[in-house]
Simulated assay, not measured.
Amino acid sequence: MDAMTFLVDTVFDLYLMVVILRFWLQLVRADFYNPFSQFVVKATQPIIAPMRRVLPSIGSVDTSSIVLAILVVMAKLLVLTLMAGAQFDALTFILYSVVAVLKKTGVLLFWMLLIRAILSWFNQGYNPVVMIMGQLTEPLIAPIRRIIPPIGGLDLSVLVLFIAMNFLNILFSQYIPFWAFI
């Protein structure tokens, strides 16, 4: 049963990350002609297109992507609960799903920042994935960089963002009972 739980968890989490990336790409108005962006759009378009007919965007916020992300987590929880033979409470599923989407967004941001920092040491020329990571993370790094400029060629803004993210993670785990378990 552990192997099936791992497989279900991994498949749903990977698709959840693609849906979060879809929302994030639209929020920062990233380059949608980038091959990485095209993959994200093609992977989510069959589900998001019909949802957009029912759920209109609110300004620059794509509500259908947010709802799809929550539904992906709810479907994952439902499948895992049924596999375990446990009972479920609808309100708990909804709350847990919203918290899980927030937590996965933070995890995705962490990995993107880490990969971007490592690739900045080796990147030679244009790379579409590096460009998209830059477009996705720069709105969060730029304000920090204005306060703490690079010191001797060393950019500490990513480190400051890591510390802030860790602080928020610890803070939320104190006040939201199941935050640490997601």
Score class of each variant (00 low, 15 high):
residue 14 L to K: 11
residue 14 L to V: 15
residue 15 Y to F: 15
residue 15 Y to K: 11
residue 15 Y to A: 02
residue 16 L to A: 09
residue 16 L to T: 06
residue 17 M to F: 10
residue 17 M to P: 00
residue 17 M to V: 13
residue 18 V to P: 03
residue 18 V to W: 06
residue 18 V to H: 02
residue 20 I to M: 07
residue 20 I to F: 07
residue 20 I to V: 13
residue 21 L to S: 08
residue 21 L to E: 00
residue 22 R to K: 11
residue 23 F to D: 06
residue 23 F to Q: 04
residue 23 F to P: 01
residue 23 F to I: 14
residue 23 F to T: 09
residue 23 F to R: 05
residue 24 W to I: 04
residue 24 W to V: 03
residue 24 W to L: 05
residue 24 W to A: 04
residue 25 L to A: 09
residue 25 L to C: 12
residue 26 Q to F: 12
residue 26 Q to K: 14
residue 27 L to D: 01
residue 27 L to C: 06
residue 28 V to R: 01
residue 28 V to H: 05
residue 28 V to L: 08
residue 29 R to S: 11
residue 30 A to K: 02
residue 30 A to T: 02
residue 30 A to R: 01
residue 31 D to C: 04
residue 32 F to K: 14
residue 32 F to D: 13
residue 33 Y to G: 02
residue 34 N to Q: 05
residue 34 N to C: 02
residue 35 P to N: 08
residue 35 P to K: 08
residue 36 F to K: 09
residue 36 F to H: 09
residue 36 F to S: 10
residue 37 S to I: 06
residue 37 S to T: 06
residue 37 S to A: 14
residue 38 Q to P: 05
residue 38 Q to G: 06
residue 38 Q to H: 00
residue 38 Q to K: 12
residue 39 F to H: 09
residue 39 F to E: 06
residue 40 V to A: 00
residue 40 V to K: 00
residue 41 V to P: 04
residue 41 V to F: 08
residue 41 V to T: 10
residue 41 V to G: 06
residue 41 V to A: 05
residue 42 K to A: 14
residue 42 K to I: 11
residue 43 A to V: 10
residue 43 A to N: 03
residue 43 A to M: 14
residue 44 T to H: 09
residue 44 T to C: 11
residue 44 T to I: 10
residue 45 Q to C: 08
residue 45 Q to S: 15
residue 45 Q to N: 15
residue 45 Q to K: 14
residue 46 P to W: 10
residue 46 P to A: 09
residue 46 P to G: 09
residue 47 I to R: 05
residue 47 I to F: 08
residue 47 I to G: 03
residue 47 I to T: 12
residue 48 I to T: 13
residue 48 I to K: 10
residue 48 I to H: 12
residue 48 I to M: 13
residue 49 A to I: 14
residue 50 P to N: 04
residue 50 P to C: 08
residue 50 P to W: 09
residue 51 M to N: 08
residue 51 M to G: 04
residue 51 M to D: 09
residue 51 M to T: 03
residue 53 R to L: 13
residue 53 R to T: 14
residue 53 R to S: 10
residue 54 V to N: 01
residue 54 V to Y: 04
residue 54 V to K: 05
residue 54 V to D: 04
residue 56 P to R: 06
residue 56 P to S: 02
residue 57 S to E: 13
residue 57 S to P: 11
residue 57 S to A: 15
residue 58 I to M: 14
residue 58 I to N: 11
residue 60 S to C: 07
residue 60 S to K: 15
residue 60 S to L: 12
